[in-house]
Design a protein around this nucleic acid. Sequence first.
DNA 1: TATGAATGAGACTTCATTCAT
DNA 2: AATGAATGAAGTCTCATTCAT
Lengths: 210, 210, 210, 210
Amino acid sequence: MSRPQTTRKKRANGVESRQRILDATVEIAGERGYEGTSIAAVSAKCGLPASSIYWHFKDKDDLIAAVIERSFETWLAAVELPGEETGTPLERVTVMAANVAKSLVDAPDFLRLGLMLALERRPTEPRGRTVFLRARDIATQKITEVAGTVFPDLDQDAVRMLATYAVAGADGLFVHREIHGDAVDLVAMFELHAQLVCDAAARMASRSKG
Amino acid sequence: MSRPQTTRKKRANGVESRQRILDATVEIAGERGYEGTSIAAVSAKCGLPASSIYWHFKDKDDLIAAVIERSFETWLAAVELPGEETGTPLERVTVMAANVAKSLVDAPDFLRLGLMLALERRPTEPRGRTVFLRARDIATQKITEVAGTVFPDLDQDAVRMLATYAVAGADGLFVHREIHGDAVDLVAMFELHAQLVCDAAARMASRSKG
Amino acid sequence: MSRPQTTRKKRANGVESRQRILDATVEIAGERGYEGTSIAAVSAKCGLPASSIYWHFKDKDDLIAAVIERSFETWLAAVELPGEETGTPLERVTVMAANVAKSLVDAPDFLRLGLMLALERRPTEPRGRTVFLRARDIATQKITEVAGTVFPDLDQDAVRMLATYAVAGADGLFVHREIHGDAVDLVAMFELHAQLVCDAAARMASRSKG
Amino acid sequence: MSRPQTTRKKRANGVESRQRILDATVEIAGERGYEGTSIAAVSAKCGLPASSIYWHFKDKDDLIAAVIERSFETWLAAVELPGEETGTPLERVTVMAANVAKSLVDAPDFLRLGLMLALERRPTEPRGRTVFLRARDIATQKITEVAGTVFPDLDQDAVRMLATYAVAGADGLFVHREIHGDAVDLVAMFELHAQLVCDAAARMASRSKG
DNA sequence: TATGAATGAGACTTCATTCAT
DNA sequence: AATGAATGAAGTCTCATTCAT
């Protein structure tokens, strides 16, 4: 008969509100980019008034940056490469590529929004762009490390170049799927990509060795 | 009493005004994307009042689409592949790749703006996006044709897949350069890209033949 | 039967609109100061939408500065001291003081708003404040000139000091009337003020001469 | 289990918090006036959350009024006129004027903020304005009393007029210093002011007596 | 072939204030 | 004796667009 839960809804809960705002923002910003994301739209989608958004985030820039940050973390967790895999280099790399492909199909917001920001060249760079580029560097670095262990005969420069090429290819394939939609078999494309990169690595390694 | 035609200059010149508007728009839209491009900003940059822009273009959508169109034509002319080149397939493809790379270094507006539009997913698709996707299809088609003649042993599906992969790789490398700037040797990256694609084609061809 | 004047109202007329906006602003800003003057309030009072105000003025700062400028000019014209007056120095100065007093009773917006701005110390000074201070300097300069001719025996420093004192007294008396309203006989107070300043001038002159 | 009283510090101290809020407010309001003073800004300057300000003060009006009140008391204490001074009237008045001048140089917040409020004319008068005007009346009254004892031959009306003029002059000179800053020798100006007022008083007295 | 002026809608952001804890 | 969170109203300013000239 006591009504503890009848305090319906409005029990101030900062953490949950923050999540709701981020959820709404990621959806909108992933569709319409930085400028296309209006605070009013976020407010409508998350149910909190615009002024409440400003309690949780300093300004729009801060909000978008937070979205990118969280989105990257989620994505990183989703692709987390299994540690001590066995098999041939090609096999190991193929598994990795498939993981990445699947993660991009499932949660593409991070990369879509990030690429939009990356392509812009505003005079005052949005903080979200910086955050995305940092995230991208981290990813490239991880790939570099994996490639170094998988192809121990390659010199540093070659490894870096291959990692760069691998990331660029992933971006391009992602864009391709964003354009052509579910018709694209992203996993298959990533498999091809992985194979080409491995071939190149093998050839480079044999050349530098022999 | 009639003014002599020596007054020339400033006899309100429609064509020139139109160009000035397009020039201003391409610059701003390339920096800030669709939503970030305001008529007021274009007006300020080209020196014509906003209302004059509406005399030349139906609305903002029309303006952006026109920019993409002109930008694509400029770019197409810049890469125009020389007709009956001789040499090995790899040589011919390598030359092509170098041409594309150089064109993207010189006039990247078309692709930058196009990719931004391509990544967005707004409810009512901007006409500029359609125009860009059509342009992209044309480019992919051309590559498919070239690949078909260079690797006559490949079946249709394989050729299409390779062309898709080639375009995706180009997009990704372009993004990479947009992010990291002039430090990136885009021509070298495209050379690597061409080689990998050719290797793949050769392997596929030998497999499908044998 | 022709209806030329039936184009009622909305025949775009920049000059008139600008005046209407300034009229509305001077009234509101004179009552509530810089921050208290909202564009919405000005819009409501002048009948033009807020966005139209921004066609005529860059921003709020620009609007307030324009108000001060126009207000000062109006006031200057209203007090314009008659040229070659005759009579004793005291008589001439008394007439001047009466003129100033009357002008301040009639159109006090300029000084009220100006003093409000002058007392503020924002980190980024409103342009209106600069404009007011310049106007005030002009007024002080004029008084200095008049005092110089009326009391030719006084040295420069003394004249400047007296002019400063005269202006300060005028400000103070104006504040007094703003506080206590129509009950105050501003003309009488200015007469007293003029007399005291003249006495001081006479005494200083005799001292410096003798 | 009870916390020992050695925790001391930070045992939420109401009085100190109140002071901190008032200190912050006086600074901001002195810079930006009534409307320009936002609770958020006060909160940022004093380090307490906005809601805490509302624990100590009913609303913004109450806060500003409290500031004026405290500021006036501080100022009154600083100028407190020594009781039974000896010397000629001019000497006594000169000392008084110097005291006032010095107090205004040291702690000008009270008068600056007060004058800003006094010049405004909003529909619902801020309580702070009322408080300031009352304080001003008290000051005028004190001067009237002193003037009455120093010039016993003057009639009531003349004394009141001189007191009014004295206060107005003080306001004007204060404004002058606010505008021109430390370059102004406020003490010297007040000395001149005192002398002129005394001369006027003497002349009036002799006239009304003779 | 243009353009000065206007405008409703909506952008981002801050406001003073409240309330449950 | 405080405060984290929330909120409706209002702030300044920009938006894309129109229209009479």
